[in-house]
């Protein structure tokens, strides 16, 4: 489950992050962000050490992780593609774009392609509403995205993976 990283390395990373964040007021969200930024997701195995460090119950940690859409409990693909489903993008044809993406990638939302290249996620507004429809690939936003643009983004993401 933790592929390239050894469990030991992950544990060391997690403990270092807990030590770094545990004394901040309202530490849980910054800590979870730091963990996800570092290893890509929040494994269930970290609930116990976090709960001990922050004097919370495991249930509270689990509750927070699962309440927020941003946090993932399983590893994503190499790239995360988010398609905006909000009203402004709907007014500019995002529904057709969503259907196109699902068909091309052969996945539904919250799923990863079989080659592990792309995880598809819905998003509700990227703040790019003057240039709808919008798509976010990892941390980059794209505006006025056509089906052809989407194909190019997918191709580029897969090509980048092939190089690695």
């Amino acid at each position: 489950m933790l592929d390239s990283h050894s469990t030991q390395e992950i544990n060391a990373t997690i403990h270092a992050l807990i030590a770094e964040h545990q004394h901040r007021p309202g530490a849980l969200l910054p800590l979870l962000h730091a963990i996800q930024d570092s290893i890509g997701f929040i494994p269930e195995a970290v609930y116990t050490p976090i709960s001990k460090a922050l004097a919370l119950s495991v249930a509270e940690v689990h509750g927070v992780v699962t309440f927020y859409h941003h946090f993932r409990t399983h590893k994503a693909g190499q790239h995360v593609m988010q398609i905006c489903r909000a009203e402004s993008c709907q007014a500019m044809g995002s529904e057709a774009l969503e259907a196109h993406a699902k068909k091309c990638l052969n996945v539904d939302y919250h799923q990863t392609t079989t080659d592990d290249a792309i995880t598809l996620e819905p998003v509700y507004c990227l703040g790019n509403c003057a240039l709808s429809p919008s798509v976010m690939m990892d941390d980059e936003i794209y505006g006025r995205v056509s089906a052809a643009d989407l194909d190019a983004l997918i191709l580029e993401a897969r090509r980048a993976e092939a190089k690695v």
Partner: peptide, 11 residues
Amino acid sequence: DEGDSGTYSDR
């Protein structure tokens, strides 16, 4: 936490 669709002035 500017989540409203159609808004981006905060950003």
